[in-house]
Design a protein around this nucleic acid. Structure first.
Lengths: 340, 340
DNA sequence: TATTTTAGCGAGAACGTTACCGAAATAACT
DNA sequence: AGTTATTTCGGTAACGTTCTCGCTAAAATA
């Protein structure tokens, strides 16, 4: 019953060879526009669907692209995937999803077992403490197109798409300063990730720019979760001298910070400024609403995918590119001094 | 350089035929345990990776399973995927992701172009107003294993995994009643989705069970978003007689309801009860915290995937199953009368 | 012992496509 | 006119598996 129409059927009916049909169906190389038209016409009529297993086997593409990332259960990554998916769908590519749970072992296993014969290319956001560096390099050296996004890997010869973490952080801290906060702490993430370092750098440079001395004890870092944010604030409040504002590496941690502040009955906004990074919808739900730097997650996804597809079609003569997309400061109540 | 070791290499080295190697690598049918052991040993040594394109072409499986769903940017679906992914990874299957954006046209297009030759099976949550009924039936009739989850399709002969929407809704409304709310409205979702109807039924039966007359004007329905929740509450408050509590079909709408209530300076909890459905992390972030019915999203994902894999390996002699997983009532501040 | 069964294996043909190369046929030059 | 390019096509061999047979040798049966 699964009577699938193949390239052979088309060839037989049109009384031409399969080679010609194959060529006509892809790019009109070595084929008469007329016969090409006939092939396309008949293919549509018969509802022909190419078999990508065969195509992949024979050396053509599989039309599958892989995504390797730590999580999908947060706003940022799910938006990135949505962006990727939009482009992939438009261009007729399928997405194969690999979630590493932010575990280096899992990531390593995924990359080792990445069947690059099944994949035309891979989009990747590495996990914290990634140990797969060498394996990614090998895949890239073998010629598989790879694009890193958000959590990029240093030193490898591949395209990269990130948001402007440095300037976003700078603007966030600048905003705190302009709101009159001067004792600004930074609740950071794992420092092995590039964007964490970028945001830290933006924080440091903003302080320097406004002649505010850096206090190392006000830079605390741990994981990315809300609980980590709560812990980090506790560590900040355990100190003799407390800060009066926090720039958090992301919204989830900022929300943890806010919850911890609420538990301590600190008036967020008026007495204590909090700003995050991401623009997670949660930041509009929490009271007071959380100021943040909006990340162009959807655009990061789209851009990454577009780059990857370019790499795939141009294959060897494609120069890796590094793209930085701008974020946007979104002031809300958590940094508003005038809040009653 | 991409020197990939194949089944032929193993055969040549061991001086046996490819057929034997092939059999040894899969299930030990017609192969001596000794030679099987040798093959497995050498395969591991050479780091042999099967080519699933070839396998798929030749009639074996592709080790790819598809997921078709409306969104990935909400808590529920992202958790379901995480669950699916966990099982798939453990069993060595890849996940191919199709996001329909809850658009019937898009879904139709995806299903029509679903290359079932590339997929061993498909997991699907249909979109609102799905028009792909017939196409799913065709795929199923062709023998492709399909499991529906959450948003199931009625009448088709396939496995289904859902949470206990009816009882969850019943318990939610019962909880409102027990908290002393009597004028309970229902902010529903699109009624063409089965689980929306189930939750409505639970709502109606709970009212009946406690001898509370149903007021049709207090049952409003629209989409699933927060904005829809705000609109629905406005419609409720436009009426002469207002309810004193709302059971919302999901947390996003419940949050919309809460925001609209806050704008109207209604004391949520004390004067007006709100309960949602899902247990989205947002429900713990909002003030007051939102009571809800926790959905076993992760378990739905795991169970769906397990069922699908069973179907795949047992192929024709697999009886479709329907599984209902229990939810759990989680009372929080938004239904607490005693709240100051 | 003669016969049948069974376990284990191999040969070869698929599966649907693309890559490679050569053959016509036509067009464009001397 | 003869020669050379160019365009358009077809034949055939892959790609790495699985599948369907059929074969051999050993084991079980008569």
């Amino acid at each position: 019953m699964p009577e699938h129409v193949t390239i052979k059927d088309i060839a037989r009916i049109l009384n031409i060879s399969v080679s010609t049909v194959s060529r006509a169906l892809r790019d009109a190389y070595d084929v008469n526009p007329e016969t090409r038209e006939k092939v396309l016409q008949l293919a549509k009529e018969l509802d022909y669907k190419p078999n990508f297993n065969a195509s992949g086997l024979a050396g053509g593409g599989t039309r599958n692209i892989g995504i390797i990332l730590p999580f999908i259960t947060n706003y940022y990554f799910s938006m990135v995937i949505t962006g990727i998916q939009e482009i992939a769908y438009a261009k007729g590519y399928n997405i194969v999803l690999y979630v590493t749970n932010d575990s280096p072992e899992r990531e390593l296993d995924v990359v080792k077992n990445l069947n690059t014969q099944n994949l035309d290319g891979v989009l990747v956001a590495v996990c914290s403490d990634s140990a797969a560096n060498g394996y990614f390099e090998r895949i890239i050296a073998e010629g598989t197109p790879v694009v890193f996004f958000d959590r990029v890997l240093g030193g490898v010869d591949a395209s990269k798409v990130v948001q402007d973490d440095y300037n976003g952080a700078f603007e966030a801290v600048e905003h705190l300063i302009q709101q009159g906060f001067t004792r600004i702490a930074h609740v950071a993430g794992p420092l092995d990730l590039d964007f964490t370092r970028q945001r830290l750098a933006g924080y440091l440079d903003a302080l320097e720019r406004y002649d505010i001395p850096v206090r190392k004890e006000w830079i605390v870092h741990s994981g990315f979760s809300q609980a980590h944010g709560e812990d980090d604030l506790a560590r900040l409040f355990d100190q003799m001298e407390r800060p009066d504002a926090v720039f958090a590496v992301n919204d989830r941690k900022a929300i943890g910070v806010m919850q911890a502040l609420k538990a301590r009955r600190v008036a967020i906004g008026r007495d204590f400024g909090v700003i995050g990074f991401t623009n997670d919808p949660m930041s509009t739900i929490i009271t007071p609403t959380l100021s943040t730097v909006a990340e162009p997650a959807y655009e990061v996804g789209k851009m990454s995918c577009e780059l990857l597809l370019q790499h795939i079609v141009r294959k060897s003569n494609f120069q890796p590119r590094e793209i930085v997309l701008p974020g946007m400061l979104i002031p809300r109540e958590s940094t508003l001094r005038t809040l009653s």
